[in-house]
Design a protein around this nucleic acid. Structure first.
Length: 455
RNA sequence: GGCUAGGUGGCAGAGUGGUUAUGCAGCGGCCUGCAAAGCCGUGUACCUCGGUUCGACUCCGGGCCUAGCCUCCA
């Protein structure tokens, strides 16, 4: 089977065929680095990391670009508040983003372009837009003229004229059309800025993605991805800019949009103040648990975040790692076909996780547990799960104990003796004593073993 | 108001025109001196009203409800 992707542009699931059979180009909208990432920001990072893994399995060459927006009014604000240059802010939070995403098993993209490193390309693109009559200068700003682009609204299925009716925006007087958006805006002396044909200023938000995707992936790209809230206006504007600047019929051939993470069914967003910061969550949960939760719902559906979901993911991972500890002998194995098939069907992660759990059943059901365990691990790798040493995973949440191994063994021997003389009261006393000190005993056919209790 | 996506068993969450999702919890069993852990088994769920059909949770239409976008936002 081939890879199928739900394309927002056509609102249908389509077979994915790259423009160039030899290479796939993917661009995902990355973070604006003015603060720590919340779990809602982590969802696209994890989902499109998974896309990258799935594509890489089938295509020789996948170029995955995920930008960093490092010039933006919110960054300016944060910098001003601290009295530092914007680079200090953007560097700090870009580093934190990388650290947090790594903990979630997110691989680094092939390219991570930054807006401030592409100012010349941005300016050149704006000049082309002016030359082709799609943009105009007004009071130090350069604006995109939406009336010049008849297909405007195609992605978000909006009618340009109707949007004016819902004008909740203050319409700047210098705009020809309320829907016109800023490509370049002037900077006062206290704000970061670059020299341009229109004076010292800075780029508008949308233009950077158009300029950077063209610079690194070409004028027509295969897949463009981001959160659902970017469909309008950001992606709509990107399409307008890119197609006008390059005179092409197509900008991105497939558009993918992830649904929101919600808290108590409400969208998590910085403006609502109900954000759960990844950096904080990682203090309480392994990154892999967060990843599992993010994969537990289909990416286009809303995902309601809760402690219950975290506990459930933790319990499931504990069980799977326990299985690996007992049965995985490091054999190599292929990815389970059901897991691969589910993921290639528009990243159906719930079905893939169901298949993963079916493999787990085979581990205990078969005589050849080792082969099934190896398959479990190989399949987990495609999902970005189950790649730690089981002992390391299981040790994460274990309590500390003051007892030495020798002391524990000695007590186990004493209990064994008590059991042999059928003094169960004494045997249970020893077991309870050890339990109180964080040691759990497990009686099996080969005698008694022990392990540290979970916190 | 315009546009979009949803309403599935205790919870989470896939999917399908007629046959087991899966996970977590619960329940039963195996194991155990008793436990714990583990393993095995277990659930006639599909918002509502019509329609199409031999047959609909699955298709079509109406209704109700929820969330989102239309403003910075993943």
């Amino acid at each position: 089977m081939s890879i199928r992707i739900y394309n927002t542009l056509t609102r249908r699931k389509e077979v994915f065929r790259p423009l160039d059979p030899g290479q796939v180009t993917v661009y995902a909208c990355g973070p604006t680095v003015y603060n720590y990432a919340h779990i809602g920001n982590a969802r696209p990072a994890v989902i499109f990391d998974l896309l990258y893994r799935v594509l890489s399995r089938r295509f020789e060459r996948v170029i995955y670009a995920r930008n960093i927006t490092d010039v933006d009014d919110k960054i300016n604000q944060a910098a001003a508040a601290e009295g530092v240059p914007i680079e200090v802010i953007s560097r700090r939070y870009a580093d934190a983003y990388h650290e947090d995403m790594a903990a979630l098993g997110v691989q680094r993209p092939t390219i991570e372009p930054r807006a401030t490193e592409h100012i010349p390309q941005i300016i050149a693109m704006i000049e082309r837009l002016i030359d082709s009559g799609c943009a105009y200068e007004a009071e130090g700003h350069v604006l995109f003229d939406v009336a010049s682009f008849p297909d405007y609204g195609q992605l978000s299925r909006r009618d340009r004229r109707e949007m004016i009716a819902g004008a909740r925006v203050e319409v700047a007087p210098y705009k020809k059309n309320p829907g016109d958006f800023v490509l370049w805006k002037p900077s006062s002396d206290d704000l970061p800025g670059w020299d341009s044909p229109w004076g010292r200023g800075r780029p508008g938000w949308h233009i950077e993605c158009s300029a950077m995707s063209a610079a690194h992936l070409g004028e027509v790209i295969d897949i463009h991805a981001g959160g659902q809230d970017l469909v309008f206006p950001h992606h709509e504007n990107e399409i307008a800019q890119s197609r006008c600047a390059h005179g092409r019929e197509v900008f991105a051939r497939y558009w993918m949009h992830n649904g929101f993470v919600t808290v108590e069914k409400r969208k998590m967003s910085k403006s609502l103040g109900n954000t759960l910061v990844v950096h904080e969550l990682l203090k309480h949960w392994p990154g892999e648990v967060l990843r599992y939760v993010l994969l537990s719902a289909h990416y286009r559906q809303p995902l309601d975040w809760s402690d219950k979901a975290l506990e459930q993911a933790q319990a499931t991972l504990d069980r799977l790692y326990g299985l690996l500890r007992e049965h995985d002998r490091g054999e190599s194995a292929a990815v389970d076909p059901d897991v691969a098939e589910a993921l290639e069907d528009d990243l159906n992660t719930p079905t893939a996780l169901a298949a993963l759990n079916q493999i787990a059943r085979r581990v205990t059901a078969d005589d050849h547990g080792a082969a099934a365990a190896a398959c479990l691990r190989a399949s987990g790798e495609l999902l970005g799960l189950l790649q730690q040493a089981p002992a390391d995973w299981l040790a994460l949440r274990q309590v500390e104990t003051a007892l030495s191994d020798a002391e524990i063994e000695k007590l186990i021997e004493a209990r064994k003796a008590a059991r042999e003389r059928r003094d169960f009261a004494e045997a249970d006393r020893i077991r309870d004593d050890l339990a109180g000190r964080g040691i759990v005993l497990k009686d099996g056919p080969q005698g008694t073993s022990w392990e540290l209790a979970n916190k």
